[in-house]
């Protein structure tokens, strides 16, 4: 198929940036969205132009690196997929596709479609872990009985890959789905109880320091999340925060 791409080009963090139009042809519906960008970049390089900078790593939906805002939606029009898993068959011949970086003041643009998501790492470092003695006599996690439902919910929360689609989609640029998932993942398990209070207080504090907006429960994050992280995790975080504050 033949397509018209309108891509956000920005030379660096200080550059103003703007949309640039590129026609592209002979795109197969079996290609992934990133492979389509690869084709474009090869053409640009052959012409001696600067290729479009974009984040990618595993290209199988688990690393959370790819981060494009495609036709007004994080990771494009499909549901439950990252940009690398988005097939070109989702588009029609002759379509115009808008491609922008994830936008949030807490995710500053580095170049073109690449944004700095280290704010997520700082939130994670503030409490998104459990402290375990790894001196050689570590207890086997499976020796602690955990209810099936709690184990399932914790696993569901743990599938968050930290891509930032929730922030990019949220009208308030709120990071609560991400932080909610990271808090709930541990708060549902016995291993997470020891540091439960400090975890939620420190992670929320760091989230606020990073300048993310406030959650107004629009539910947009849950819809656009490639891993289907539930809003229930935000409710769990709110309860944990309330418990830790009293």
């Amino acid at each position: 198929m033949d397509l018209t791409l309108k891509i956000w080009r920005q030379k660096g963090p200080e550059d103003k940036g703007g949309m640039v139009t590129y026609p592209i042809s002979n795109i197969s519906g079996h290609m992934s969205f990133l492979e389509m960008i690869d084709v474009l970049n090869e053409e640009l390089i052959n012409k001696g132009d600067e290729p479009v900078a974009f984040d990618h790593d595993c290209r199988e939906g688990i690393c959370g690196m790819c981060s494009m805002y495609i036709n007004g939606e994080a990771h494009g029009p499909d549901r439950g997929v990252t940009t690398c898993q988005l097939h070109m068959r989702m588009f029609k011949d002759g379509d115009t596709i808008h491609i922008e970086p994830f936008r949030s003041d807490s995710f500053p643009v580095i170049k073109d479609l690449v944004v700095d998501r280290s704010s997520f790492e700082r939130i994670q470092q503030a409490g998104g872990f459990i402290s375990v003695n790894t001196s050689g006599n570590t207890q086997d996690a499976n020796s602690i009985p955990i209810g099936k439902e709690d184990a399932d919910n914790a696993m569901d929360a743990a599938t968050c890959i930290g891509c930032g689609a929730c922030v990019a989609t949220c009208k308030n640029s709120s990071a609560m789905l991400f932080v909610g998932a990271k808090v709930a993942q541990y708060s549902l398990l016995p291993q997470g109880q020891v540091e439960a209070k400090d975890r939620v207080l420190n992670m929320v504090k760091q989230m606020d320091l990073e300048g993310f907006g406030n959650c107004t429960n629009t539910g947009a994050c849950e819809v656009e999340c490639p891993k289907g992280i539930s809003l229930k995790n935000i409710a769990i975080m709110n309860t944990e925060y309330l418990k830790a504050s009293i």
């Binding site: 036709n71 007004g72 936008r103 009208k171 308030n172 629009t218 656009e224």
Partner: peptide, 15 residues
């Protein structure tokens, strides 16, 4: 929290 706006945004698709 978001001073640079999207050129194209479809909030009606998810909320």
């Amino acid at each position: 929290a978001r001073t640079s706006k999207y050129v194209m945004n479809k909030p009606g698709e998810n909320s």
